[in-house]
Amino acid sequence: MKNIIINFSLVTALLASCSPATEKKVENTASTAVKKDAVPTSGQIENHISKADIPADFSVLVPIDLLNRKSTNTYEKYGIEFSGNCYSCDLASLSITNDKMVWTNVCDENDTFKINGFSFSIEENKTILKTSERTYILTQIDKAPVYELLVEGQKLQLNNKRISRYFTTKKTLPHFKEHDCGDFEG
């Protein structure tokens, strides 16, 4: 009788271990583990996209100013601002690469202000950069290229670095109308 009970217990245990309910639990656990390993977190996706999608032109944006509102020629309508480049020397150029924005005084490349970590999106002709304090909207308003910058949120105060409303790329800058500082003694 004792052998029959032991054999019956073993058969019951063996059948219980092979039941469909147990197999489903094992499959669910395995599939969950695979999903966690295969799908990156949203932060990883965002960082990967932002590094790949930042326009190369944004690596060096230089400030320009609206000189002749009525001109239809972009290179005469916008140009290098005399005051910020010659007199007060307080304009800031902008560099956006990977996860960093750098504001640099146009007269002193060692005078910088860095903003690390931001998210961004591109919508048609707008690039929107977001930090916890501000939103920077760069809108391409001309194919030359000319970008208009709008800063929303907390006021950005940079010592000796004034932010222009308009920017262009460094390689395009020579095409714009230029005010020569000449022998200016300001």
Rank of each mutant, 00 (worst) to 15 (best):
A52W: 12
Q140N: 12
P145E: 09
E46P: 03
R162K: 13
S71G: 09
N159E: 14
A13N: 06
D183E: 13
D142Y: 09
S164V: 07
F120T: 01
L91Y: 13
K35R: 12
I163F: 00
K143I: 09
A56E: 15
T131P: 09
E81L: 00
C181Y: 06
D53A: 14
S42Q: 10
G79I: 03
N47Q: 08
L150F: 00
C107G: 04
F82C: 00
T22D: 00
R134D: 00
F58A: 04
T22Y: 14
L158A: 11
V39I: 15
A56I: 14
N110W: 07
T41Y: 07
A33Q: 14
N98A: 07
I54P: 10
C86Y: 01
K100Q: 13
I115Y: 04
F58T: 07
L156D: 07
K51T: 08
T168S: 09
E27L: 15
N7G: 12
C18P: 02
T135E: 14
F82H: 11
C89T: 10
W103N: 07
I64Q: 02
Y75W: 05
P40N: 05
V106I: 15
K130Q: 13
L129K: 03
S88V: 05
H48Q: 07
L94Q: 04
L14Y: 05
V106C: 05
D90Y: 04
C107M: 09
E178M: 07
I137S: 10
E27I: 15
T135N: 03
I128H: 00
S71L: 04
Y147I: 02
E152P: 00
K114Y: 06
I64S: 03
D53H: 11
E27C: 06
C89P: 01
E123G: 05
S50K: 13
S59P: 07
L149M: 10
M1V: 03
K170G: 02
T135R: 12
I96H: 07
S119M: 09
S119A: 11
E46C: 06
L158T: 12
N159L: 13
K161I: 05
E76G: 03
G182R: 05
E46L: 10
H175I: 01
S31H: 07
L129V: 15
G186S: 11
K114H: 02
N116E: 14
N125K: 13
L129W: 05
A56S: 15
I96D: 06
D37M: 04
I122V: 11
K35S: 11
V102E: 11
I49M: 09
F58N: 06
K171N: 11
A21N: 08
P63G: 01
I5S: 02
T22E: 03
K2F: 04
T112R: 11
L138W: 02
A16F: 09
L156F: 06
E109M: 11
H179L: 08
S119P: 00
D53W: 14
I5C: 00
N116A: 11
K24A: 08
I54T: 15
V26G: 05
K161R: 15
L91I: 04
Y166D: 02
G182W: 05
I141W: 06
F113E: 12
F118E: 08
F8L: 13
N85E: 01
E76Y: 08
E81K: 05
D65F: 10
L15A: 14
T169N: 06
M1Y: 01
